[in-house]
Design a binder for these strands. Structure first.
Lengths: 135, 135
DNA sequence: TTATGTGCAAAACATTTGCAGGAGT
DNA sequence: ACTCCTGCAAATGTTTTGCACATAA
């Protein structure tokens, strides 16, 4: 495909990555923008989008195209899946060892050259389930 | 959750569903709009969006929130997964029998109440693979 | 008759892009 | 110096919404 482009080590890039690595949530571009703006008040939203995109392309971070309207970003690159709460839209990691198995089955089941996959679970998170019980 | 609302049987609704059922692709709202407009030239794009949303909520059709910028719709409700070509963005069905297995594993692996899941494979479709070979 | 649905246009969002100046290498 | 990057603002693309009129039940 593509070699990572000749990427410069700018303050903006560094701080975006640092802020993303600080959280275990899976923030949207706008949430990253808010976090980064506390340290770099003059940064532009476009810069955040451009850098998240670039870093995702070169595999430094993960871009999640999960349900909902906005894309989300994740500093954890190692393979894992995601659960999204259908009530509050929170996204969490989930780790089940089926990666290989599923790719093999998929390769057998269609005439695509399978490159990978992502599983998105939907469910109700603990907090939302309890809120429901309280009534 | 929710009961299907009291839904009327309108011409627009019927034709949207008919057109969606005609194709095996997974059209975007705008593509559905184009198909339907051949038969109902005065239909509004808003109407198409409202109806696709309503029918998805009541389980008549499937709304796919797959990678890419637009949502896609599918008249096939029975459980199946999807492959998306990373070159041309085409989406096809793929059927592998791992549904149960995966839900059970996920339930054990997190504290969400798992409701379901979707797998999106990414790969290169036949057409794009051949185009590459030709050079 | 009356709640729901429709067409139209505007609004709301999310994301991308053009450009002139700024900063890594 | 020479690119690549940034801030800003405007443009784009997708989806939602307000409203007055139409229509299914």
């Amino acid at each position: 495909m593509h070699e990572p482009p000749n990427m410069r080590f700018t303050t903006q890039r560094q701080i975006i990555l640092e802020e993303l690595a600080k959280v275990t949530s899976h923030p949207t571009a706008n949430e990253v923008y808010d976090m980064v703006r506390r340290r770099l008040p003059r940064i532009g939203l476009g810069t955040v989008y451009r850098n998240l995109e670039l870093m995702a392309e070169s595999g430094i971070i993960l871009k999640l195209e999960v349900g909902g309207t906005q894309k989300r970003f994740d500093a954890t690159v190692s393979p894992h899946y995601h659960v999204r709460c259908t009530r509050c839209n929170k996204v969490d990691d989930i780790d089940i060892p089926v990666q290989q198995h599923i790719n093999v089955m998929a390769t057998a089941a269609c005439d695509y050259q399978i490159l990978g996959h992502h599983i998105e679970f939907s469910g109700i998170c603990d907090a939302c389930a309890q809120r429901q019980q309280e009534h």
